[in-house]
Amino acid sequence: MMSVRAMKAALKQQAIHFFVDPQWVIPSIIAPFIFTTVTLFLFRHTGGDLMLYAVLGGGVLGMWGNTIHSSSWSIGYDRMNGTLEAIMVTPAPLSSVVFGRCLWNAFLGLLNALAVFLVAKFAFGIDVTVRDPLGFLVALAATLLSLAVLGMVFGAFYVVTRASSALFQMLEYPIYVLSGAMFPLVVLPEWSRPFSYALPATWGAEALKIASLPGYDPLGLGYMGALGLTALTTLVFLLVSLWLFSFLEGRAKVNGTLVRY
């Protein structure tokens, strides 16, 4: 069902594309950077943990923005480029190709988060010491993985239509808010919580905050609890995306929509 070889090849391909084409620097590096800077500026009088909160928000947002852009790009690009059929005719599952590319983008997000921390520390002089550095790194990796998987869910729709991009760009911002990356979950309205809780990024961000902010745990999950929920929701989305890929590939093969751009 998955091909590691195809994933690696796709990751490498995505990396080459990144280095060759500087336009990706804007959504993946500059945008989250500006986002964080603005946030830090707004919060500059509050001080303390809230500042770190903003740094984390910017970091996670950076990763998220990156992943959603890459998912927009991945199959959409192949469709535009005429390579979708060239991949489909091989035995490698399309989902593996997309996953590999999303992994690269998530990795970029990691570098991004690092950049955000450095800016916070050296440009704004914020204390960015995290409480549990190892836990923080593990949670970060888990969050990245969950974002890659969520990217796949979006990516699948490009198999049937190119109209997907408008939809996902619309979804990007609500997800910033719902995942609690930007604001604490508890300040969001009651009705939005089910959406928040369904997102792996929510639990990833929660685990990150628990690992970094002393005494932070508004939902009483504990670090392992938040990490476990990240893993669980990620797994659910992974299964959803695999199912979506096979379902939508089937649709495309009936309707003949693989080539229409």
Binding site: R5, K8, A9, I16, G82, P91
Partner: peptide, 20 residues
């Protein structure tokens, strides 16, 4: 139907990987 930002060889490598 080709990745124009990759070299000819990289294109062939990518598709070879799809076939293991």
């Amino acid at each position: 139907g080709l990745y124009f930002r990759l070299t000819g060889r990289q294109n062939l490598e990518f598709f070879s990987d799809m076939y293991h």
